[in-house]
Simulated scan of single mutants.
Amino acid sequence: MLRLIEALAERILPAPIHRALMPLAHRIRHRWRRFSGQPIAGVSVLLTNDAGEVLLLRHSYGPNVWGLPGGGLKRAESPEDCARREVREELGIVLCEVKAIGTLEEELSGAPHTAHLIAATTRETPRPDGREVVEARFFAPGALPYALGDVTQRRIEAWRTRA
Score class of each variant (00 low, 15 high):
Val133Leu: 02
Arg123Lys: 09
Ala15Pro: 02
Leu46Tyr: 07
Pro141Cys: 05
Leu68Val: 06
Ala9Glu: 05
Arg34Lys: 15
Pro79Ile: 01
Arg19Lys: 15
Trp32Leu: 15
Ala163Ser: 15
Pro69Glu: 12
Val87Ser: 07
Ile118Phe: 04
Ala20Arg: 15
Arg19Ile: 02
Leu2Ala: 13
Ala41Ile: 10
Ile101Pro: 12
Ile17Glu: 02
Gly92Lys: 11
Leu55Met: 11
Val54Arg: 10
Cys96Thr: 08
Leu4Phe: 11
Thr48Trp: 06
Ala158Phe: 15
Glu157Arg: 15
Thr152Phe: 10
Glu6Leu: 15
Leu104Ser: 07
Asp50Val: 10
Val133Ile: 13
Thr48Ala: 11
Met22Phe: 04
Gly130His: 11
Thr48Lys: 12
His113Pro: 06
Ser109Ala: 15
Leu95Asp: 04
Thr48Pro: 03
Gln153Ala: 13
Arg27Met: 13
Lys74His: 13
Pro79Gly: 03
Asn64Gln: 15
Ala100Thr: 09
Ala140Lys: 08
Ile156Ala: 02
Leu46His: 13
Asp81Ile: 00
Ile101Phe: 12
Glu86Leu: 06
Gly130Gln: 11
Ala20Pro: 03
Leu144Pro: 02
Phe139Val: 01
Asp150Gln: 14
Arg123Glu: 09
Arg84Glu: 04
Arg131His: 02
Arg34Ser: 14
His18Ser: 12
Ala119Asp: 14
Ala143Val: 02
Gly72Val: 05
Ile118Asp: 03
Arg3Cys: 05
Pro39Ser: 05
Arg162Ala: 15
Arg31Phe: 14
Ser60Gly: 07
Gly72Ile: 04
His26Gly: 06
Ala143Ile: 02
Val98Tyr: 06
Pro112Gln: 00
Ile101Ser: 11
Lys99Tyr: 08
Gly142Asn: 10
Glu132Tyr: 05
Leu73Pro: 13
Ala147Val: 03
